[in-house]
Design a protein around this nucleic acid. Structure first.
Lengths: 229, 229
DNA sequence: CGTACGCTTGACGGGTCTCAATCGAAGTGG
DNA sequence: CCACTTCGATTGAGACCCGTCAAGCGTACG
C-alpha cells in the first residue's frame, strides 16, 4: 500500500490519525506503466485517485491529433477533478506511477462525515482552479521564452518537497512540455539551449540543473509560480 | 431587487419556492457602471455575487500592462469562484451591470442547511472548471481563426437563453475579445472581416449576425462550445 | 462642427512553426 | 564487445502567421 499519497496530502494538515487510518483502509493501490492511460475524457468518474508516485499528464485531444496538456499531476495530488462526476480530461502515466484508488461512493460518504477531509478536497479543487487560471494567463499572454522560464520555476517549486533543488530537476519529455505550453518540441528545445547559452540552466539527461533562478524569475517576471498542490 | 439572477440560476432546477424566497431575502442588489471594478484580484472574498444583468469580465493583469481575460460572466452565473476565500481574478463591469450580493457567511450558512443550494454551487464550480479547461485548450492549440470562430459559437450558445439567435448577437469590445483569446485587437478584427467576406457573419453595431453557423462549426471543429453556465 | 473613441485596413517585421537532417543515448542481437 | 535500430533531442533553413506601427474611417457626443 503506497503511503506516499497520504503522507504528502495530509503531511501539512493536522487530521486525527485514526481518521487517516480509516480512510487508508478504503484505498486500493494501482500501478501503471509509462504511457499507460489511467482514465479518459468522457468516461464517468467512478473513482477518486490520489497520486503516490510518478507524474501524470492530464490532457485533451483534438480529432486532428493535436493535444493540449492541461496540467501535470505530482505525488500528493488528486488526479482529474475529484468533485466532477465525469472526466473532462484524459490522464496518462509519465514514467512509473502508483496511485491510491478509492471507490467514488466510499470516498464521498467518508468525506461527508469528516469535515476535515472535505475541507482538503475543496482546498485541492480551488488550488487546481487557481493553477488553471495561471495557465490561461501564461498561454494567452506569454512568449515562448516567458512560458519556458515560468514552467521551469513552477515545476521546480512544485517538486521542491520531493526533490533536492541543488541536484538536477527531472523534466517530462520535450513533447509533454511543448503540449503543455502550447509550443512545439523544437521551440521548447531552442529555449532551453538559449537559457543554457546564458548559463541560466544546464541541460542534463532527463532534466536540467537550474543555475540562475534569479535571472529566470526576471524573464518570467509577470507570471506566478504556484508552489502548493 | 433584481430577480434575474434567481430566475436564471434556479430556472432549470426544482428547488422549493420557499427556499428560494428565503435565499432571496439575504440578497442585496448592487449596480455598476460600465468599466467599474466589482472586485480585484488579491482581495479577500467576503461576498458571493450572482450576476443579474449585463456582462462581467474576469481578468488578470501583468505588471507591464498586459491583460488576460479569464472568462466572461453572464446573467445567472456567479462572479469569481464562489468557493474561494480570496479573489484570484479582477471583475469589471462591461456595460451596465446589476448583481445580487450575499454576505459570504450568510450565503454559506444557508447553503450548508440546504443541500440543493450547495449542489448548485458545486455544479457551478465544476462547470467553470470545465470552461477553464476548454479555454486552455483553445489558447494552447488554436489558430486565430479557430479561436475567433470558437468564441463566436460559444458566446452564441451561452447567450441563447437571453438573446434571440435570429437577431444580432451582442459582442464585448474588440479589446475584451482579444484579451480573452490571447490575440490583438487588429487580429480579431481581421478574422471578423474575413468571416464577413465569406458570408459567414455580418458585422453590425456592437455585435454580429451569424449567417452560417455550420461553416463556423467546421472552422472551430475541434473545440467544444459550452452551453451551460 | 470638432473631438474622442473604437474599429478597420495596410505595410512591415519578427517570433514561432514546419520540414528536414543530424546527433546522442539506450536497447537488441549477433 | 560491437553493429544496428529506435527514439528523443538538437540544429538549421525557410515559410507563414500574427504582432506592431501607422493611417484612415465611422459613430457618438459635446
Amino acid at each position: 500500500m503506497p503511503r506516499a499519497f497520504f503522507s504528502y496530502l495530509f503531511g501539512g494538515s493536522d487530521l486525527p490519525a485514526h481518521e487517516l487510518r480509516q480512510l487508508q483502509l478504503l484505498a486500493h493501490e494501482r500501478r501503471y506503466r509509462p504511457g499507460q492511460e489511467i482514465f479518459r475524457a468522457g468516461e464517468l468518474s467512478d473513482a477518486v485517485f490520489g497520486l503516490s508516485r510518478g507524474v501524470v499528464s492530464h490532457s485533451r485531444h483534438l480529432p486532428d491529433g493535436r493535444r493540449q496538456v492541461i496540467r501535470f499531476g505530482i505525488p500528493g495530488e488528486f488526479l482529474g477533478v475529484p468533485l466532477a462526476v465525469q472526466h473532462t480530461v484524459s490522464a496518462r502515466a509519465i514514467g512509473e506511477v502508483a496511485v491510491c484508488r478509492f471507490r467514488r461512493d466510499d470516498f464521498f460518504k467518508f468525506a461527508f462525515d469528516h469535515p476535515g477531509i472535505m475541507g482538503l478536497l475543496v482546498k485541492a479543487v480551488t488550488c487546481q482552479f487557481e493553477q488553471a487560471q495561471s495557465h490561461i494567463l501564461l498561454l494567452g499572454s506569454g512568449t515562448a521564452e516567458e512560458k519556458t522560464a515560468a514552467f521551469l520555476l513552477t515545476w521546480r517549486n512544485r517538486l521542491a518537497d520531493s526533490h533536492d533543488p541543488s541536484v538536477s530537476l527531472p523534466l517530462p519529455r520535450r513533447g509533454e512540455i511543448a503540449d503543455y505550453l502550447g509550443l512545439t518540441i523544437e521551440t521548447v528545445g531552442r529555449m532551453l539551449t538559449r537559457f543554457e547559452g546564458r548559463n541560466l540552466i544546464q541541460v542534463v539527461l532527463d532534466g536540467v540543473k537550474l543555475l540562475d533562478t534569479e535571472q529566470l524569475e526576471l524573464i518570467s517576471r509577470p507570471f506566478e509560480h504556484a508552489k502548493e498542490a
